[in-house]
Design a protein around this nucleic acid. Structure first.
Lengths: 200, 200
DNA sequence: TCTCTTATTGCCCTTTTGTACAATGTACCT
DNA sequence: AGGTACATTGTACAAAAGGGCAATAAGAGA
């Protein structure tokens, strides 16, 4: 994993180096090509932070904000600006690695108190956001289960799916039974809707 | 680390065992003394889950909720009830281990979809213009046929639709038969997609 | 009044779906 | 070599969906 730390410091904190010996440390104006994860040092970036976050969000780059003060409100603001994590800049190397692992797995890392506040905010929006269609985690499905599910999403019946995939109808049913359980839907109608990004 | 899995299953899922070979698997009524981390299988615990969470929160025991449903509302609710994590019960062993590590480090673990919703809070308003949808000619349907079709579009089955509309299942079928013919679709799956603006 | 449409439901039937309980074979990993 | 996940298929069964035939009822209109 490729870590890029952005700060106005002369050199990165030793803790950062300890966690990621191969990290790249750059100034605010520098390019960040090829970075898997960007770490922003809010304490030294100061006023440049918001603009920096907007830029990273636009190019869909995952980033974590490191702050001198564990301020919940700042954390929420960071997450709303697209941050995948918010932590103390003096966090222990082990914790930094932890955060990197979580973010790499597609997760969001913030402290417990912050998370509760974030949850409060998102509670109201959750339903509406769901109606827009948030990506479902289809990675739980195997290749064949996914293939069958996609055909269901097109409106095909079992016989047609069997024909398309070159298997028997029984096999199609077997994949569907597992897919229903994994995606927690009741039947093919709900699966079809799910596959088209429609929340049930 | 001492893992205790609570479920109503006869034996733990193989994925759990793979992640934690030394796990302890117990029934809902059992004691959980000496557990470092408790995993609750929401899918099998069902209605007993909320009470279980309250109990664990009271004794300050760290716990993670495993659900068959990737439901973000449930995730938020779980965290608000004191859960340190919320994940899919079919999550891969590596992910379960990661969650355990995060929680052990005092963190909170939620999945990508919850994160996405949180991030979409600010963006949501801008996206409403995009939801226009292709207008199918639904005017050929009578009032009741349309009502039934709309419920199908939500993923309900005939019994539920009958209940909602206050008629018998037979009546629902009758309306559906006509609706299929008028809209030139074969079955309820295709109708459900059609009602959601998805071309077949 | 008589007709037409729509809504409703029953009985009975076929087809489709969905599951339970297996078994077989392959690939991969420890 | 043994374990596990995955894909595949079988038989058998239960549930749901779908439809044919037919009857009743309400409302709108010629």
């Amino acid at each position: 994993m490729n870590h890029v730390f952005i700060s106005s410091l002369a050199k990165p904190l030793s803790r950062w180096l300890q966690a990621f010996p191969d990290l790249v440390h750059v100034a605010p104006e520098s390019a960040i090509d090829g970075a898997d994860l960007v770490w922003l040092d809010a304490a030294s970036l100061k006023a440049a932070l918001p603009e920096m976050m907007v830029r990273l969000q636009l190019i869909q780059r995952r980033f974590v904000v490191l702050d001198a003060v564990p301020d919940d409100d700042a954390a929420i603001k960071a997450v709303q600006s697209g941050a995948c994590g918010y932590a103390h800049r003096h966090a222990k190397p082990a914790q930094l690695e932890e955060i990197a692992a979580v973010v790499d797995a597609g997760g969001l890392w913030v402290g417990p108190s912050v998370m509760q506040k974030v949850m409060q905010i998102s509670k109201f929006v959750a339903r509406e956001a769901a109606s827009v269609g948030v990506d479902t985690d289809l990675s739980v499905l195997t290749e064949r289960e996914l293939a069958v599910a996609q055909e269901v999403g097109k409106g095909l019946n079992n016989r047609e799916i069997a024909q398309v995939l070159g298997v028997t109808e029984r096999t199609v049913k077997a994949h569907l039974t597992v897919a229903f359980e994994k995606l927690a839907v009741r039947d093919r109608v709900q699966l079809a809707l799910l596959m088209n990004g429609i929340s049930i």
